[in-house]
Design a protein around this nucleic acid. Structure first.
Length: 551
RNA sequence: GACCCGUUGGUCAAGUGGUCAAGACGUCGCCCUCUCACGGCGGAAUCAGGGGUUCGACUCCCCUACGGGUUACCA
């Protein structure tokens, strides 16, 4: 077989040679040890926590080593393109603090290794496929879908491994004339790898490959023997081939991807070897899982909209909190480090792939919320105020007029009880924050909780009028509370809870019940931060007004 | 089915032959306390099972079970 002739037959329009691309995309000029990583999303526009989790690894590895992180759009599947998807991906990731140094961006491609959309790189891939054909490492396959199905059915019947390989690869040894003939008939074809892997021999003949995974250590698996499709009928490569060509030409040093790629690793290894290129370091990350019907399951785009990044954004989780959470499940020693360095920047943590877990991790909302509390308590009230407003603008526009123009008021509210050694940690995310403080705004204030049962309606009125009468807005906190104790005592309630506990039969209740009456009248709820502080923010007028309203 | 990866409390996990098997979240109890938080103290709760190897296995090997993933002209 004259492979050169075959190559010309298949790719008459390809005039460039692989060397042209090698010189066009030279080795990157980076300091020793610098890592080059990439994110390669397919543009469905949907991006979830799991993607962000992986993106952090890329980002950290690159930026920690003085390397570079780029965005490549893997749009080789024309069936799943979504309008505006790339913008959505970029903005989602940016919101959560993941930024790229190179590649696809809002303003078009940046960098010298483009184009960064795989659909625009057809000529490059074809050049390399042509080279493979010339070397006898690839061949055209004209099998139709029906033929492929028939092969699979037969394999199932014989209980043999499915796929296009060995003696099942019917077009592997077509003669030049046969190929020429089909080409003349304009039959569509794909180009397949002529795998060097063992095919039909006895099992002990199957060779294995060994690969050092950055996260998992040495991986040993059977070598590839599938004549995988390199180029689809439309001239666009499959993921496998695009990955190999792009990561070589874009000089990627570390390929971070989900564990679902593990089974196709032998294919990639064979491709790199037949191309004569060095293998990048693969880092196969654990999957983020979800519990369903008592079983763990990989996160799915279709089934788990609540795990999309947009969901967390719309709930108002602070990006720093989401990052912090992801970092704690990403590196087992992060949490410990954080305990020792509560104020350090996330970037100061030395992230290592070795410390990554390789079994699937269940997403834990309780943990996120807990972490979020600690993150938010370290953010100034003024910044929290801006954050809440930004969130409202996007997700709760009706609240904006409440906040804007009254930022001082909001800031005071958000800062409530956060001073001192043991600041309150009330906030987890923006939506919850607003619910928590909503009683400060008349439109959202309403009596939600029931008054204590041991306080009669009559006592309630007596308590509240006494409170109103004795109220002095300039009282300090202890003066204020002394008055409450007095009201309690006068009306038959213990001034101290301990007294009540000792002799419950002597009292109708204790000062806590009296406070609760006031609290509910003022806040509408039985649970809230300190009443006195709230009154100071609410102001004298509004405080009195709310008490009068329930008298 | 085949192949691959995995398996320490409810969850995230430390651990690399000798530990009373860390820690965090959650949960329960107590303390603090005018409520709720915050904080403090304490409790319950884990090495999937079976064989080896070894003086000694959570740690090494094998088998089984279970879970997950892959098996496309999707990525």
């Amino acid at each position: 077989m004259d492979y050169n002739k075959l190559a010309e037959l298949l790719f008459p329009h390809i005039t460039k040679a692989p060397e042209d691309y090698e010189t066009l995309y030279p080795e990157r000029n980076l300091p020793a040890g610098a890592k080059v990583t990439r994110l390669g999303p397919s543009p469905t526009g949907f991006i979830h926590l799991g993607n962000l989790y992986g993106a952090f690894v890329d980002e950290r590895l690159a930026h920690q080593s003085g390397g570079l992180f780029y965005l490549r759009i893997e749009d080789t599947d024309d069936k799943r393109q979504v309008e505006g998807a790339v913008e959505a991906i970029i903005s989602s990731l940016e919101f959560f603090g993941v930024t790229f140094d190179e590649g696809a961006s809002m303003e078009g491609d940046r960098g010298n290794y483009g184009p960064y959309y795989q659909s625009l790189r057809a000529e490059i891939y074809q050049t390399y496929v042509k080279q493979l054909v010339q070397g006898g490492h690839a061949y055209p396959c004209f099998c139709t879908e029906e033929e492929l199905n028939a092969i699979r059915e037969e394999q199932e019947r014989l209980k043999e491994n499915p796929g296009y390989y060995g003696r099942w690869a019917k077009h592997r040894n077509l003669t030049l004339e046969e190929i020429q003939n089909r080409l003349e008939q304009k039959l569509p074809f794909v180009v397949r790898l002529r795998s060097q892997g063992t095919h039909d021999g006895p099992e002990e003949d199957i060779r294995t490959i060994s690969v050092e995974d950055g996260i998992r250590g040495t991986l040993t698996m059977p070598e590839n023997n599938q004549d995988v499709v390199l180029l689809k009928a439309n001239g666009i490569p499959t993921y496998h081939f695009a990955h190999v060509v792009d990561d070589h030409l874009m000089r990627t040093t570390h390929v971070v991807r989900g564990a679902e790629w593990l089974p196709s690793l032998p294919i990639h290894v064979e491709l790199f070897r037949t191309m004569g290129w060095p293998l990048p370091i693969y880092c196969h990350t654990a999957q983020l899982m979800k519990m369903e019907d008592g079983n763990k399951r990989k996160l799915s785009k279709r089934k788990d909209p609540e795990l999309s990044l947009d969901y967390y954004r719309s709930e108002g989780y602070h990006p720093r909190a989401v990052r912090e959470y992801l970092l704690t499940i990403l590196n087992s020693n992060y949490e410990e480090w954080r305990l020792e360095n509560p104020d350090a920047a996330q970037e100061d943590f030395e992230f290592t792939v070795e410390k990554m877990s390789n079994s699937g991790t269940l997403f834990d909302l309780d943990k996120l919320n807990d972490i979020s509390k600690d993150v938010l308590v370290r953010i100034s009230a003024a910044e929290l105020c801006d954050f809440l407003i930004d969130w409202a603008k996007k997700y709760r526009p009706e609240l904006v007029e409440l906040f804007v123009g009254r930022e001082d008021y909001l800031t005071k509210i958000l800062d409530l009880g956060r001073q001192g050694e043991k600041p309150r940690k009330d906030f987890t995310h923006a939506r919850q924050m607003f619910e928590f403080i909503s009683y400060f705004y008349d439109d959202y204030f309403k009596i939600e909780d029931a008054y204590p049962e041991n306080v009669s309606e009559e006592d309630r009125k007596t308590i509240l009028s006494a409170y109103l009468e004795s109220y002095d807005h300039s009282d300090d906190q202890s003066q204020w509370f002394d008055k409450i104790r007095e009201i309690a005592a006068v009306n038959g309630y213990a001034a101290k809870p301990k007294d009540y506990k000792k002799n419950p039969e002597l009292y109708k209740g204790h000062v806590g019940d009296v406070s609760t009456v006031i609290r509910i009248s003022l806040m509408g709820r039985a649970m809230s931060p300190d009443i006195w502080e709230i009154q100071q923010i609410l102001g004298e007028e509004k405080t009195k007004e709310r008490i009068k309203k329930v008298l």
